[in-house]
Design a protein around this nucleic acid. Structure first.
Length: 108
DNA sequence: CCGTTGACCAGGC
DNA sequence: GGCCTGGCCAACG
């Protein structure tokens, strides 16, 4: 099967715990690819239920401008429902960033 | 097959 | 802190 790259990305996104967020850069680094590919994969995201793409944000904590499931406002609502707070600029606070990264679970 | 685009990031001003 | 440029890789027309 092709598109294994996307499968890997989706798998990693699913590993993000509830109440936490991750960044495109982290995923891209783990898979040794460019952040652009990660964004592309999430844009082609099959389903929000299958892949919580709303938990993936920019390095700055900014939300995705082209969130397929409704937009930034919807994504913000989703994160808020997870118990995440935002700064006055509408960005996710750094403390909610999943610092454990995927490396911890992948490396032995 | 080549040119353009894209849910990015880092560096410079 | 904000704006612009370069780079990187994959998919689309």
């Amino acid at each position: 099967m092709s598109a294994e790259l996307y499968e890997a990305i989706y798998t990693l996104v699913r590993q993000i715990p509830r109440g936490n967020v991750s960044t495109y850069g982290a995923i891209s680094k783990v898979l040794a690819i460019n952040p652009r590919v990660v964004g592309y994969a999430l844009h082609r995201n099959p389903s929000a239920e299958k892949t919580p793409c709303h938990r993936v944000v920019f390095k700055d904590g900014q939300l995705s401008p082209g969130y397929v499931f409704g937009g930034e406002d919807v994504q913000r609502a989703q994160l808020k429902k997870e118990g995440i707070c935002f700064s006055k600029k509408g960005k996710v606070i750094d403390k909610y960033f999943w610092e454990n990264t995927f490396n911890d679970g992948i490396l032995s």
